[in-house]
Design a protein around this nucleic acid. Structure first.
Lengths: 332, 332
DNA sequence: TTGAAAGCGCTACCAT
DNA sequence: ATGGTAGCGCTTTCAA
């Protein structure tokens, strides 16, 4: 900036103002300075600027990967969410600092918060870290994607997991399914809520239906595959599978195919998320769609409002059942 | 830091040193200071630190999304790559600044580089931006994931697209396929290289084989689906499809299923990438595996070496053909 | 409308 | 082993 000032024959103050588009600088001079900077490839140093302004125009996105839940950063759900959040953040002229948090790290939230790298934090997925989040609740510029539970002190944005799961299971019951297995890891709050919706729907099940059956499995396709194979080897009766995520459901699809069970003829399969590939499985997967784009927009909106000092409530987004071939009426 | 110094009854210099773990500070005093900081939730301000040190311990990851190539940040390929790169960066104690670059942005590379936010830049995918990259070649701390082409001045890391594609097509020919269609967008350098490998293999095809047939399509499942459907409606003869990416191949799988063509009985399908879901399609997809983990490691390695002042050459990684059911021997 | 100068929070040099 | 202090590059108040 010194250089530009010297070249333009003005002070650094004037250059700073000109580059910020201030009208305090004479129009001609301003344009001259801007031209000069562009020519010389000068760009304002963000670090110095941030230090001076005490804000970074950057939002931190943190992804806690719980121990053994099997999720990884490459999980299509995270990827999808990261993509949409990146869109939203970029659109508002903010930068995005991506942080992957592995479980053993202690007080990661505090560190992230106070280091001054970002103006606020978006945490995607509560994933076991519920307690840490509760503690950080006092810190305002924080919004979490996940399930909203009573007694929760931090601000969340998430789909209506209970209602979504209930709709899925009611659909299965309505199409004649009677033995519906739930595949997932209920240690994750969102999954627990989905399981709750599942149980809830089963309570009003017709006579002759089997009760709730929870098959615990990490949230990955391989895990879903293995878990369901094991269950079938045991000879358990089932005519429907509700995968807690599409990934798990896709694993289930393959396990069924390998075992010679026809989908949807013998067994119906339903997932949750509606990731891009759900429409392209064989058969295409019935699933509960989460509105990721809307979710991302809401996350960023709420966070920016919190940064501005507002105290925002949690938001629950509607989730929509998308019926595809994997749960067609039995025998259809 | 002032506060901590006052509390500990020492100078800020000492606090700074203690927090950095310097052995110049008496052991007892050091521990006392660290304890005090932890207690009061004090964390060193990264921005000030970076300004002073003139480095940010942060790497920028930029993803240029070309016009109309149909790729989006939610493409499993990007997601996978981002995940692995995030892993590598995190592991080395660096932060990751994620940047999505939309085409109209001008001189985005320069801005990114000079703003001082990051010590170096990883660009994932050349995607139409080849020219801009060539210009930025002078800027050293820059590594690009993509194809390596003659005359290229910037440092790339990428799979051996030509060899990978050749292996895939040779496999198809060896198993009796004679009319192999290539599905993809050859404006993207990597895809152009794959197409080259495809043509190369076809040149040594047995008598009676059809020549190269390029079906241009954006790199997304829907696009692959539509493109292949259109081709089949035209009544074109084909007994194999080579999708430039797994996503396109998955679209092709579904188009074939919808049209009543059996895979691999009537038509073989091969993809490229080996994304997680390739093993879970019906039938499981034969594909050319890119070693993403290794690629990410190499990207970060080379970038850090460039930051240290070294001039590194481009790296080409081997790509491995993974044969699954979608290309089993005809009639098998 | 412009310039001088203070200071954001930190590290590292130079003294002691 | 510890402290004083300059200065990283910028914005903004205050004075002119």
């Amino acid at each position: 900036m010194q250089d530009i000032a010297r070249l333009a024959g003005v002070s650094v103050s004037t250059v700073s103002r000109a580059l910020a588009g201030s009208h305090l600088v004479a129009r001609g001079k301003r344009e001259e300075i801007v031209r000069l900077a562009a020519e010389r490839g000068y760009v304002v140093n963000t670090t110095a600027r941030n230090l001076r302004l005490k804000r970074s125009e950057t939002l931190s996105v943190a992804i806690p990967l719980g121990q053994g839940t099997g999720q990884s950063l490459t999980d299509p759900f995270f990827v999808r969410m990261i993509g949409h959040v990146a869109d939203e953040i970029t659109q508002r002229g903010y930068g995005m600092y991506l942080q992957k948090v592995l479980p053993p790290t202690e007080s990661w939230l505090e560190r992230l918060i106070d280091a001054g790298r970002a103006d606020g934090i978006i945490v995607i997925g509560q994933n076991i870290e519920h307690a840490a989040l509760q503690e950080a609740a006092a810190y305002r510029p924080l919004v979490v994607w996940g399930g909203h539970e009573p007694g929760q002190r931090y601000c969340t944005v998430g789909s209506d997991n209970v209602a979504g799961a209930t709709a899925a299971v009611e659909h299965l019951l309505a199409t004649g399914r009677r033995a519906i297995v739930f595949l997932g890891d209920t240690r994750v709050p969102e999954i627990r809520l989905r399981y709750e919706g599942y149980r809830c729907a089963l309570e009003s099940a017709p006579q002759g239906s089997a009760g709730a059956r929870l098959l615990a499995t990490p949230l990955a396709a391989d895990a879903g595959y293995e878990a369901l194979r094991a269950l079938m080897r045991e000879g358990a009766a089932l005519d429907a599978v509700f995968g807690a995520t599409d990934l798990v459901a896709i694993g289930a699809l393959r396990a069924l195919a390998d075992a010679g069970r026809r989908v949807p003829g013998d067994v119906a399969v339903v997932g949750f998320d509606d990731i891009a590939l759900a429409a392209h499985t064989t058969p295409p997967l019935t699933t509960v769609r989460q509105d990721f784009a809307r979710g991302a927009r809401t996350l960023v909106d709420l966070l920016l409002r919190r940064i501005a000092g507002e105290d925002t409530p949690s938001a629950v987004l509607q989730a929509e059942l998308i019926v595809r071939d994997s749960s067609l009426v039995r025998g259809a």
